[in-house]
Lab assay of single mutants.
Amino acid sequence: KFNKERVIAIGEIMRLPNLNSLQVVAFINSLRDDPSQSANLLAEAKKLNDAQAP
């Protein structure tokens, strides 16, 4: 279950337009470290993406 959620979360994070490459890598590394947190990490990535919108 967590592996599928992690793959989906990674794909979504990679498509967030307002994150820089270091932020994307940090979120992906966090997902690798704890796949059970996929939903929480994706939500945090989306919040950061929205906050950094031009």
Rank of each mutant, 00 (worst) to 15 (best):
K4N: 04
A26P: 01
S36W: 06
A53V: 09
D50M: 11
L42N: 01
N49W: 01
A51F: 11
D50T: 10
V25Q: 14
N3C: 15
L31M: 07
D34M: 08
D33V: 12
L42D: 00
N49S: 07
L42W: 04
N29G: 05
L48Q: 05
L42T: 05
L42H: 02
A43G: 06
I10N: 02
L31T: 02
D50S: 05
L16R: 00
E44I: 11
L42Y: 03
E12L: 13
D33H: 13
N40V: 07
V24Q: 06
A43K: 10
R32T: 15
R6H: 13
P54T: 10
S36F: 09
L16P: 00
K47T: 11
N40L: 12
N29I: 09
Q23C: 03
L41F: 08
Q37C: 05
K47W: 09
L42E: 03
I10W: 03
P35S: 07
N18E: 01
F2H: 14
A51V: 11
Q52I: 04
E44V: 10
M14H: 04
D34F: 07
S30R: 14
I8F: 12
S36Q: 07
L48M: 08
S38G: 05
P54F: 11
A39V: 07
D50W: 09
S30V: 13
I13C: 03
L19I: 04
L19Q: 00
D50L: 11
Q23M: 03
N18C: 04
I10G: 02
N29W: 08
Q23T: 02
A26V: 12
M14K: 09
L31H: 01
N3Y: 07
S38I: 15
Q23R: 01
F2L: 13
A39I: 12
F27N: 00
N29F: 13
E12N: 08
D34K: 10
S38N: 15
A9D: 03
L19W: 00
V7P: 04
V7S: 06
R6L: 15
D50N: 12
R6P: 15
L48V: 09
A39S: 11
E5P: 03
V7F: 14
P35Y: 10
L42K: 03
D34A: 07
S21A: 12
G11T: 09
I13D: 00
V24C: 04
N29V: 10
A26N: 11
R6N: 15
Q52D: 02
S36Y: 09
L22N: 05
P17W: 04
S30H: 13
A45W: 02
